[in-house]
Amino acid sequence: MTQHDMTHPHDAETQGSLKSYTIGFLFSIVLTIIPITAVLYGWAEGMTNTIVLMTAAVLQFVVQLIYFMHLREEKKPRYNLVTLILGLIILLVIVIGSMWIMLFNMVAT
């Protein structure tokens, strides 16, 4: 960042190549089609179905982060990575905490 260039912090931006964007796009399309067809045609039921959907969702998340959010190419200090980890921790706290509080609720159950 030059000294007088104060309105746009450019240095954090990273650009992918056409190849990486294409690969990312294909991955994300495939990972969208799998759960849709799984639900439409009823491939699996119950627990298996849940696992398929969940796995596709998590992989989709990873694909987005790597190919479009450029998480791997970040220079130090890795603020984006730290924020992501913190976000995941808080997400886990929300989900696990809510389940713990609500499922062990003696009034509700």
Binding site: L86, W100, V107
Partner: peptide
Amino acid sequence: SILSFLVWAHHFFTMGSGADV
């Protein structure tokens, strides 16, 4: 800042989530 995310249930102790919670 981080710990503030781990205390929310103290606003509804009386909801009856049990002694552990």
